[in-house]
Design a protein around this nucleic acid. Structure first.
Lengths: 340, 340
DNA sequence: GTGAAAGCGCTAACAT
DNA sequence: ATGTTAGCGCTTTCAC
């Protein structure tokens, strides 16, 4: 285990000054060819790598982005994360990741730990608890410290910053319209994320689509909760008591459970029941029948967020107007809906 | 946007020296109560946070771990990652994450970018390409630079470092034994990860279990490839040509595709065909029928790896013996296998 | 009890 | 063409 090479050591061993070494290694024209070559070769021999921490201190910037993700097991977030990581790397940035586990406290703690020079800016999606409690002071504080934030997916109108979202409302409208075109009349709405901003937007889209098509809203066909276990129970009840010809599901848990319970009851999908759900990841394809989904292009969301943040970090503008980027979703027709 | 408070500024505003401020804020007994209080209150008022980069430079350590994950969309890796993140955070470490995307070049590039003081050590799982090419020089180089590495899951015997793995071989043996106890005689082995170390170990376990039970190995019932598309084709063929009563699948793709194709053919699971597969994540539960799995306790693997690395980083021992920790798997019986 | 000074590793303005 | 110096923000030893 060799001791780390530093400019100082190299300078001493070569009997030159530290700054000569520094300049030689950055190929400065100030230094003569022969010394340059001598120093560069010696540095390579010693496997010299400039200490990044020292450079960060000098530059007052770390080229590192702090990313806060509510739950990395959710394939949507995993996709966004991979988009952030790849765009950041492309631009020469590192990514420090924290998983908030949907906890407000962890979110606050993380932002506090990292906002001391460790990172140049944040990309985050608000935790469930934070959205429930509508507690956004920590975001505002960080921003007023001059650390930029880009929010994605789960955002807050109260916080002034760049945002990247999906057109949740419109996606819902068009998905439900699609079901209506398929001749579905009794479309159930199911959600186990009714505490999230995105869950509410999606539910509103359903209402809008039914209204537009003069279909009366039937409360009995709507399950909106934030508790997956409660959902399972109510879904069973719904299938037992009411006849439905479609399910519009706002999250992965409800998409898959609705299908599972329907299949168990012997209901044929898609012949007797069409199912469309918000879902990401490969699993919707792997199910039998495969699930028709609204896919959110997570990778693009991540890339857009990273691009936005890095642009902001690298612009010298004092004034900056905040933008909200909308990434379009895509309706992927698979085997849980009939073909038009 | 307030300018960041520094010791220097506080010192000037309070007409004391930098070192006094530093000591007062670290509650040193050298400083008198009144000045301490004055300084501490002023610092709080100014929202002073010690610059972490400066501290890192001083300490020659960053309390940051570099994590390299082949693919974060794989729920096994996502679980391991969340284990690493939580254990690291508990111990006061940050985590810089890179996704190698199974690429050797990205792996090398990442390790090069981070091994300049940015991180104190690495936790990683070897990329597919790296395993295929058996190219391990970059790992050895990093270790010889004095940066510790902990490998998990996809490891190499050629590299001398701490490791955390699953008992792939034994898990396979006992899973296949379970199928045999269920009275299965014609057990297919399917794998689309035959290029990975873990894939090979699991396949060996299958052979061992059949041998132990005096069941002849039938090559026609074995599909081992590293190409998912090729697998789909050969699986269809296998189902068409041969009668089988069980499938033992070494990865998620083959577990789910085997089930999907069998269901499509009208084969009843588990009555006519039992399926066990290596799988993680919630999706095995959500399938119809739910999939019996060998679950790998990804979170524990991540925690163990982080613990190992941090212990190494914080021990002053010059000499250190490398350990390989084995995390036991668990056979989760669900609806794709009959109950005993 | 307080302060000056050195040093972590590097860069860059400013000598020589 | 090379070297000296100061400084990034902090801690710590050593003077006073």
């Amino acid at each position: 285990m060799k001791p780390k090479a530093t400019l100082k050591q190299i300078a001493k061993e070569l009997n030159v000054s530290v700054s000569t070494v520094s300049k030689a290694l950055s190929n400065s024209p100030e230094i003569s060819e022969p010394t340059k070559i001598k120093i560069q070769e010696f540095a390579k021999l010693k496997n010299y790598k400039p200490n990044n921490v020292a450079i960060n201190l000098k530059n007052r910037s770390t080229k590192t982005i702090g990313v806060i993700i509510p739950n990395i097991l959710n394939p949507f977030f995993a996709k966004v994360f991979s988009g952030i990581e790849s765009k950041a790397n492309e631009k020469g940035y590192n990514v420090i990741t924290c998983i908030s586990n949907e906890s407000l406290e962890k979110e606050i703690h993380t932002m506090d730990m990292l906002s001391n020079g460790t990172i140049d800016g944040f990309i985050l999606s608000i935790s469930e608890e934070t959205q429930k409690k509508q507690e956004f002071k920590h975001f505002k504080d960080i921003i007023s410290e001059g650390i930029p934030i880009v929010m994605f997916d789960r955002i807050s109108d109260e916080v002034n910053c760049d945002k990247v979202v999906v057109d949740d409302f419109d996606s819902s409208v068009s998905a439900v319209n699609h079901l209506i075109k398929l001749d579905c009349k009794k479309i159930a709405l199911v959600s186990s994320i009714d505490n999230l901003s995105v869950g509410k937007l999606r539910a509103q889209g359903y209402i809008k689509a039914l209204n537009d098509n003069d279909i009366p809203i039937n409360k009995d066909l709507i399950i909106r909760t934030d508790n997956p276990d409660e959902f399972d129970f109510r879904m069973q009840e719904l299938l037992d008591k009411h006849e439905i010809d479609a399910v519009f599901a706002l999250d992965e848990h409800t998409s898959t459970m609705a299908m599972k319970l329907a299949i168990k009851k012997g209901i044929k999908i898609p012949e007797e029941l069409s199912v469309i759900g918000f879902a990401d990841g490969v699993w919707s394809r792997r199910m039998t029948p495969s699930l028709s989904t609204i896919s959110q292009h997570g990778v693009e969301i991540g890339e857009a967020a990273a691009k936005l943040l890095i642009e902001k970090l690298e612009s010298k503008e004092e004034e900056y107007t905040y933008t909200t980027t909308v990434i379009k979703t895509e309706l992927r027709q698979r085997d849980s809906t009939k073909k038009l």
